[in-house]
Structure formats: structure tokens, C-alpha cells
Design a protein around this nucleic acid. Structure first.
Lengths: 190, 190, 190, 190
DNA sequence: GATGAATGAGAATTCATTCAT
DNA sequence: TATGAATGAATTCTCATTCAT
């Protein structure tokens, strides 16, 4: 409530944004606190007023990603299960496509920092999708033979295309959303 | 103090194997030369008899992976294009599934070490698959509307499932091969 | 823990002075960065704030010497050539005698570090002296038979006496100035 | 007396010769045992059969130099003192000029290795020369006003010219012998 | 004796973190 | 609050020395 609070929070976000840019550029392992400070236009020591240490920057970045990721799952709205699944796919792809730096950082963190529990993140995604598939089955919208195992494929399609796009910006991730939906969602419709 | 003069090449492989295990455990960034030496049952300095420096361990691991990867593409044999595509998918998945540590390391390197040109690796995979898809189309084996763009989805399916398996060993990658083939190969048959 | 922000340039000079003392004591080859830091009353890492690396300490020491050396040649003033030659001899000896540590370091660097072009340093001295000898000859102040080759002997006298003084402080270098002048300058007067 | 003895001694000399070449090239500080071994056409470990360690190579080189140096002082023959002094000067210069590598190494060792007592070496030279000067005075061959202090100048002339020749091979050391004698010996004749 | 693989102490350098100003 | 000089633990790499073959 004190204006300080606002300042503090804004400062935190500025630093986190700078950290994402630096991490995307050099990876966490190569990113020096000083690099982040410079990117944020601050002095080294000032970072420590907002974060207890270098690792806290990681945690901060992860939290932002998790929040964004959860927001997609929370905004599927109403309608037939497969429609919501389509929204999930498109929403996820759009969110990722709109924050390439962040996506790169997450991949790097994923691959680098064991403490980040990506198994849980993917597991949560699979669960939500499996749930939608169960509902779709109940709605009779699912082709026979397609079950919850399909959730892994849908997550895989999204993440695998993301991977290729991260490795090679020439890959058109946004454009792939249609293909992913066609194969992964429409392809299993009864 | 242990002048056990092992074959130079065998020694290299031993060290590389130790490096893969250590990298898989802690990531390249956290892996100390001393860790690799200890894992290999050698002294620090001994590593330098086989490798000029820390980064050379990376290069060595990458070479092994690239060789294994290329071997799959070179062993598709004869037959209808979609049959060969199926072999590619199963071969890739099996190869990855058989070397989890190695796969983890490759992902970490991918995400961490800019010099590794994963864009080229994925690009090569997509090209081979696109070629098979073109042949399948020529053979009239492909459903209308499916084209070379599908190559990205197939690569994505494989890599995306790999990703989930790496994050969570409970995911049954080998078992997913059937699903991937069903969706990505059989699913596009005319 | 000691953010005493000294003037950057002053700090550089302090470190350089410490380096000269340490180098004189143990030689560059044996001097550890940590030794220099300790001598300067600083922590190891602090040295790196003023110098990019160990070798830069060498370069710094050499620069100081070169500047001092050039100053003597630039301050010969006016008067007969042999008078100026005497000033050169006395000035050089005094300068060296006043900085024994520095002289030791320079000899060590000279003998140790190939990049230091002592041939050029001696060559320059010989040239200046040869020039004075030519002028002296033109002034009719030079004994017949003495020519530019005598420059090498004068430089040799100075450096050779310096050498003995460095090896054995009991040698009275300052006192030798008179002898050097008597033999090398007055000894060739017409 | 056993042939072994001969072999051992020959082997020692070969290694020492190799060491001198390597030291002259890179300086003691930069010379690796392996470099010396390679120069001698031997394996690293073989050096240790003839020398207890790296420093012993230094000592060996120094001994050779000392022996050569002493030989000159011991071969002044008979005749007037100033004639013997001239022989000393020419002998020393010739000896040095004939072993440039060795001279470079000695300078480097001198400047690098505190345990080598160069003060004693120079002191011995000065003593011998001072003795000759005393005899010359007794013979009435010395100009009034020239005394034992002149010994330092003679040593200085030799060493100072040596220094310039070592720094710059274009300096003609052998040719300088005449000049040194003219100035340092003939120049003080009564 | 000769070899050279193996060892590990030691040194330069980096950078997260602290804290006087 | 913001700063950045100072610190020193930690890491890579070198190389003298040892010793099994």
C-alpha cells in the first residue's frame, strides 16, 4: 500500500525482464549478475535489494512462466471438450510464440537447473488434456481407440514444435498451430 | 602411479562415458573436470591426456550422438516410403530410449551450448522425412492435404515425447512409439 | 570489505610499486599474483580491478622504466657535447642507483621476457651517445681515433657496472659514476 | 672405470647441452623437462636417471660455465701484468663469443635464479684483475691515479658489451675486444 | 635402463556477494 | 536507497615427479 511497495514490485519486474533477456542471450550458466544489472541499467549491488541471490532470479523467471502457463489452462472457457482442447493448444502456442525470449529461457532452465520440476509442469498439462479427452469421450466426440494416452502426444506435438522453433526461428510456430490442431485434435474426432 | 597403459581410444571412450553420466546428473555447467575424473576413476590431470580441455568433452559427446543419429537415417532399408518412415520413427525412439543419459546430455547441451547447431540437426531430420513424404505422395500412399509440412509434426512428436520422458522417466517412451506411428504415420495414410 | 575508493591511478601505482618489490625479491617467474596482492595489502582479486592479468604488471613496470629512462635522455640541456655526454652518464647512473629494485626487475625482465625489446633500448642509447660523439668530434673535442664505436663502450661501462652493483650491493655504483666519466668521457677528450 | 661410468657422464653432458639450447630459447622459467628431454631425444623420465630434478639442470649448466670461466683465469701465462690483463680480456670475450647460447642462459639464470651467486663470480674476476693491476703498478706500468677500482670498470666493460651483444647479435662482440683492450688496458698504461 | 601414463599440488583468473560510503 | 570497490572461494589447466611395465 505504501508507494514503496509499488516501486519495489516494479523494480523486481524490470530486473526479471532484464534477466530474461540476458538468459536468453547467454544462458543462465553464462549470465553474470553484472550482465543482468547492466541490462537493467542498475548497479550490481542494487540487484541484491530485490533478490537475495543469483538463483532467485531463476526462480522469479520460472514463476512468471508458470503464471502465464496456468492462465492459459484457466481460460479455456465453456463448450465441447475438443473445442476447449483446441483453445488450449492455440492458447499455449500463442503464448509461447509471443514470448520467444522467455521460452528460450525456460528451455534452458529446464535443461540446466534440476530444481525446476518440469515433470510436474508437463504432468499438469497432460492431466488437463486427459481430462478433456475423457470428457470428449463421454460426449461421444472421440474416435474409438483414442484414450488418455493421447494426452502425451498432444503435449509432445506442442513442445516438439516449440523445440524446433526455438532452434530455428525460420520454423513458423504460429502457423503450425493449425497443423497441430488438425492432427492432434481434429485427427481424433469421431 | 597407475601407468596402466590402456588403449588410447578405449580410454577416450571410458572418459566420454563417464562424462555423459556426470553431465546427465549435474548438467555440463555444473560438471567439474574433477567430477568426470572421479566418475572415470582417474585423476584430474589424466583427463587432459585424452582431451585438450573441458569443452572437448562436450564435442566428444556430441560426435557420439551425431554418429548414432546418422546411423538411424542410414538404415531405413527398402520398401514403401511410409514403411521406411515408420522405421525412422521407431529407430529414433529406440535409439533415444536406449541411451537416456546421453539423451539428457544432448538436450542440456542443445539448450545450453550455442555452438551446437541443433537447427541443422532438426533440419536434417525434417528433410529426410519430407523426402519420404514426397515419395509416399508419389506412391499414392498419402492422404490428400498432407504435405511436407507434416515433417515438422513428426519430428515434433518424437522430440516432444522425448522431452516428457526425459523430464519424467515414468513416461513410457518405448511404448509411445506405437502411438507416434499410429498418429504420425498411419494417421496420414491414404 | 574495504571499499576505500582510492583514486584509480593511485591504486595502479601502489600495485605497481608492490609488484616491483616482489619481482625484485623473487623474480617475475616466481612472483605469484597473491604475493603482489599481499605486498600491496590487498586481496588477490583486487589486483584484477586495475590490471587485466599477470603479464600486465610486467608491462606496467616496463613503462615506468622506459619513461624514467627517456627522461634522462631528454634532459641533457645545452653545452659542449662531452658535457652533455657526462650528464647522460651521471643522469643514467643516478637514476638507476635511485631505484635499485626497479633496476633488478628490469634486468630480470630483460633476461627473461622475450617480448621486451632491450635491443631497441640499448640501440637508442647508443644512437644518442653516437650523436654526441659526432658533435664532439665536430667541436674538435674528441681525441683522434675515437669514433662512434665508442658509444658501445660507454653503454657497456654503465650497464656492466650496473650489473655488478645489482649482483653485489657492496659495489658503489654512485661512486663509480666518477670513474666511468673519467674513463669513458674524459678519457677520450682531445 | 666401468663403461657405465663413461656412458653416464656422456649422457649427462648430452642432456646438459640440450638444456642449454632449450634454456637459451625459452628461458629456464618456460623450459619444461619434457622440452629438454625432446631436445635430447630422450623420454621425460630418462632425464631423472641423470639428474635428481629440474633444478639440478640449472646447477649443471652453471658448473660448466664456471669451469670455462675459471679456465680463462688459469691460462693467463707469463709476462707483464698488463699483457696478462689483455689476455684475460680477450680470453673472456672469446670464450663468451664462442658460446652465445651458454652466455644467454647464464644471463637468464643470473637474473632469474637467486641461488646462483653471481656476486662471487664477478667478485672473483675483480680480484684477479685487481691483482694484475697491483702488479702492473709495481711494475710501474700503470698511469698514476689508476688503482684497483679500475677492476670494476674492466669487468663492467666486458659484461656491458656482452649484454649489448646478447640483446642484439648485430653488435660485434669479437670485434669489440680490441676497443675494450684499447680503452680498459692500453688506456691506463703509464 | 628407458619409457611415458598417471598423478595431484599449485597458480591464474572469475565472479557472487558484501558493505562502507 | 544505490553504488561499485573489495573480497576470496572455487575452478580450470599445467607440469614436475613417480613408477609399473
Amino acid at each position: 500500500m505504501a508507494p514503496r511497495m509499488v516501486d519495489k514490485e516494479a523494480r523486481r519486474r524490470e530486473i526479471l525482464a532484464a534477466a530474461v533477456r540476458v538468459f536468453a542471450r547467454k544462458g543462465y550458466a553464462e549470465a553474470r549478475i553484472e550482465d543482468v544489472a547492466a541490462e537493467a541499467g542498475l548497479a550490481k549491488g542494487t540487484i541484491y535489494l530485490s533478490f537475495p541471490g543469483r538463483e532467485a532470479l531463476l526462480a522469479g523467471v520460472f514463476e512468471e512462466y508458470a503464471a502465464r502457463s496456468a492462465a492459459v489452462l484457466d481460460a479455456l472457457g465453456e463448450g465441447p471438450a475438443l473445442t476447449r482442447l483446441e483453445r488450449l493448444v492455440r492458447g499455449t502456442v500463442e503464448t509461447l510464440a509471443g514470448h520467444r525470449d522467455h521460452a528460450i529461457v525456460m528451455l534452458r532452465l529446464w535443461a540446466t537447473a534440476p530444481p525446476l520440476d518440469m515433470a510436474a509442469v508437463y504432468g499438469r498439462h497432460r492431466e488437463v488434456i486427459a481430462d478433456l479427452l475423457r470428457q470428449a469421450a463421454a460426449e461421444g466426440a472421440l474416435r474409438p481407440g483414442v484414450g488418455e494416452r493421447h494426452a502425451t502426444l498432444v503435449v509432445g506435438l506442442i513442445e516438439g514444435c516449440l523445440l524446433q522453433w526455438l532452434a530455428d526461428p525460420a520454423v513458423d510456430l504460429a502457423g503450425l498451430a493449425d497443423d497441430i490442431v488438425a492432427l492432434g485434435v481434429e485427427g481424433v474426432r469421431a
